[in-house]
């Protein structure tokens, strides 16, 4: 203890300065580099998922296009806009902290939190939709629908490529809550126009009795399931980051409300801002990759 006290004599302590630093400039630089290194780490963390996406999408573009088309681009686009607005309010929070404007800081943080929560709300709506349509890739986690007559007459026996993808989504009997996907019309389309990839020719087809190739609904379903798996892991991990960000905002709200941040000291606001913008950037990529690519096949 004694050494600690004696050495303290040499250092002039500004408020908020930690003992290992000489001055605030050094502390701010350290924190800023640390945060950026953390973001680098985050980029590579998501990068693993993007690699998986890249590999599977290049192997099975039609399955991914089919999955993309089922996702609702309206909700996805809305969420993109919501996140961009929240990014704006976050940037303004930093701006007002730099201006030492406490009340505007608080307002902007509340707005950021509101838009962040809106984003999660929309995500919940989308996830519910997947639950209802049997699109959660894990068996047993989907809505369980009993086998009744009405459901049976929905053209379940039709070959999968004749299912009309424009028809309203029909619910098939799904007593165990399996992942289900019956529409492989895109494969037919791609086959007719002759732009199936080699791995797709292996991945979607089986040999029929005459030795010809026949689209196999089950094999195609497996590939679509991989799309939905990546969809859930990527958006789920992103949503998890949003939740962490909201927690960060809550803490920021409390400290900003108590007037901690002024033009002299606003590092925590700026760092939280970096995190928030990073989460936004991830979504900027997720939106086109998951919702939009392959949409032109149907337009």
């Amino acid at each position: 203890m004694s050494t600690h006290e004696t050495s303290d004599k040499f250092v002039y302590h500004e408020p908020g300065l930690q003992h290992q630093f000489e001055d605030m400039g050094q502390q701010e630089e350290s924190v800023s580099i640390g945060m950026w290194m953390f973001l680098v780490q985050e980029i590579l963390f998501f990068g693993g998922l993007f690699t998986a996406y890249l590999v599977f999408r290049s192997k099975y573009p039609m399955a991914f296009a089919a999955g993309s088309n089922h996702l609702d681009a309206f909700w996805g686009g809305l969420n993109t806009l919501v996140l961009i607005v929240s990014s704006l309010t976050m940037a303004l929070t930093v701006y007002y902290a730099q201006k030492s404007n406490r009340s505007m800081q608080v307002i902007m943080i509340v707005l950021t939190m509101f838009f962040g929560a809106t984003f999660l709300g929309v995500k919940a709506i989308e996830y519910t939709d997947k639950y209802n349509h049997g699109l959660i890739p894990v068996a047993g986690l989907n809505k369980k629908i009993k086998d009744d007559k009405a459901a049976h007459e929905t053209g379940h026996e039709k070959p999968c490529w004749e299912v009309d993808h424009n028809a309203p989504a029909v619910e098939h009997p799904n007593p165990r809550g399996d992942f289900q996907w019956t529409d492989c019309s895109l494969v037919k389309l791609a086959q007719d126009k002759n732009f199936l990839t080699e791995s797709e020719k292996i991945g979607y087809f089986v040999k029929d009795e005459n030795g010809g190739d026949r689209i196999d609904a089950n094999k195609f379903r497996d590939k679509v399931r991989i799309f939905f798996f990546l969809y859930f892991v990527m958006t789920g991990l992103h949503a998890l980051h949003m939740i962490v960000g909201l927690g960060l905002m809550l803490w920021l709200l409390w400290t900003a409300f108590r007037g901690h941040y002024t033009s002299e000291y606003y590092m925590p606001v700026e760092m939280s801002g970096l995190y928030w913008h990073f989460v936004d950037i991830v979504w900027i990529f997720l939106f086109p990759l998951l919702y939009l690519l392959g949409r032109h096949f149907l337009h």
Partner: peptide, 12 residues
């Protein structure tokens, strides 16, 4: 954002 949505619906 709007541009990327509409670009996706056009077959380029």
């Amino acid at each position: 954002t709007i541009a990327t949505y509409f670009a996706a619906t056009v077959d380029m």
